[in-house]
Design a protein around this nucleic acid. Structure first.
Lengths: 170, 170
DNA sequence: GAACAATTGTTGTCGTCAACAACAATCTTT
DNA sequence: AAAGATTGTTGTTGACGACAACAATTGTTC
């Protein structure tokens, strides 16, 4: 029962608990609680960061009611008009079943249109409407503002370093 | 209509589309599709990375049937025995309503026990069982193996840089 | 000390999301 | 032409975050 003071991988000693069982009354909760091995796990840090970054994105683009997934779909279609739903789904790593509902919503808002493909009558060629192209430019300006929030939070150079480290996943 | 060729923040030019509308037949899907501004967004990269890292964690710890959230709860309780549910929830950023079900599951598996607090009869003091402490040591070994997978994927030094950049979120 | 407000654990609902499975229409292969 | 694969669609399931309500208990205020 002494192996949980230090965890393998990183040499970070576990913060010693100041309360074996009692005396957590009147203590500001969530202030002096050690994470032990968790502090050395990339997954935990990334999860917390992703939560923060998505919340900020949603808040920054709340006025136009565009969420991260919708933004990614619009951006890819805008850069590659004529793509099929399958191609978009694979490129963005979302299921084609889910993309159906996303496109339904975007099509109802007149941002995207499904055009019958000339070469494959099973698939739809995806395009932005004129309104969609105009709106996307506005979305990109707001997204750039969100990205500045990220820079303010972790630092401009750290943000670029992060993008470089994770470039193999995009 | 020229603002989407280059996005602000990074100097990465948008990959020019090679297919205005046709000729995506017989093309390996998801191979030559540009992301445009998406490549410069930290949120997108982080989301893809988190997906990968969680899948690897779940796969690596599949034999013991422990998922990331469960592991985080066990680790925090192991390092801070006697904590209340509220304190654990706040520390990990999960809702106390959700922690109830997590603890129900962990208690059924005899890894955690809820002890009536001596100082506050509303709250429960959380402890690992003897079996829970033993199991957690095994979980940590497997989690360290998962962390090695991360190092293999993005590089050992990049992983440590990442942890340092995101340390303000842990 | 009694009344009121705040906290803790619990239960429930709602909306989002990933992971599947099944299906009809269509394309490809043999 | 027949068999198999692909595309879009619909549906289900389970995990998850957010939120509201509630009983029991504690803290605060008069």
């Amino acid at each position: 029962m002494s192996s949980q003071t230090v965890h393998p991988g990183t040499g970070i000693p576990a913060r010693r608990k100041q309360s074996a069982k009692g005396s957590q009354r009147h203590i500001d909760p969530g202030a002096e609680i050690g994470l032990d091995a968790l502090a050395g796990h990339a997954g935990y840090a990334v999860r917390r960061f992703q939560l923060w970054i998505f919340q900020d994105f949603i808040r920054t683009l709340a006025a136009v009611d565009i969420k991260p997934t919708q933004y990614s779909v619009l951006t890819v279609i805008g850069a590659n008009p004529g793509l099929s739903q399958m191609a978009v789904a694979k490129r963005l790593g979302i299921e084609r079943a889910r993309l159906v509902h996303l496109l339904d919503s975007l099509e109802r808002r007149r941002l995207v249109k499904r055009v019958q493909s000339a070469t494959d009558r099973r698939s739809h060629a995806l395009h932005l409407t004129a309104q969609g192209q105009e709106s996307l430019r506005k979305f990109k300006r707001l997204a750039a503002e969100h990205e500045r929030h990220v820079s303010d939070k972790i630092g401009k150079e750290n943000r670029e370093r992060l993008l470089q480290i994770l470039s193999c996943f995009t």
